[in-house]
């Protein structure tokens, strides 16, 4: 196993994911948000949970806090040598997103720590300590 996870983002069948990754590579992280103005939704929403209207991508600040995290000790993807840390980040706009911790020598993460979007050059969205 492993190689099947190494596909480039352009091969994603889901156009929303492709668009989020395309914009993230330019430095702009987006969330789903109500097109009628109700605000940000979770990333699983396909319609606004408040008004039922459509959702669209809107830029977020890139700031958030660690809601939870886990450390993987198996390599599944050549871009993610083990061990690596997955953060479940709660963006300050409200949605939570799974991202990879860009550790850069910092101490281990803790739930509640402030983190910030640090890039997605290789098609993987990474956050580092704020």
């Amino acid at each position: 196993m492993g190689s099947r996870l190494d596909d480039e983002p352009t091969k994603d069948v889901n156009p929303v994911v492709s668009e989020i990754l395309r914009r993230a590579k330019t430095g702009e992280l987006c969330c789903l948000s109500c097109a009628a103005g109700c605000g940000a939704t979770d990333y699983a929403a396909r319609i606004c949970p408040v008004c039922g209207k459509s959702v669209e991508l809107r830029p977020v600040s890139g700031h958030g806090r660690i809601h939870s995290y886990s450390v993987f000790h198996t390599q599944y993807n050549s871009k993610l040598p083990a061990p690596y840390t997955v953060l479940l980040v709660e963006l300050e706009e409200g949605p939570r997103l799974a991202v990879v911790f860009d550790r850069g020598g910092e101490s281990p993460p803790k739930v509640g720590d402030a983190v910030v979007f640090s890039g997605a050059d290789d098609g993987i969205v990474r956050f580092s300590m704020a």
Binding site: S70, R96, I124
Partner: peptide, 29 residues
């Protein structure tokens, strides 16, 4: 878990164990 097809795997969040590990860490906190 996130609700975007392919997102979890891309970001290394693999397997049931990965999802439950997030529950453990949250519970600990």
């Amino acid at each position: 878990l996130i609700g975007l097809d392919g997102w979890d795997e891309r970001h290394g969040l693999i397997g049931a164990t990965g999802g439950f590990a997030l529950s453990v860490q949250r519970y600990f906190h």
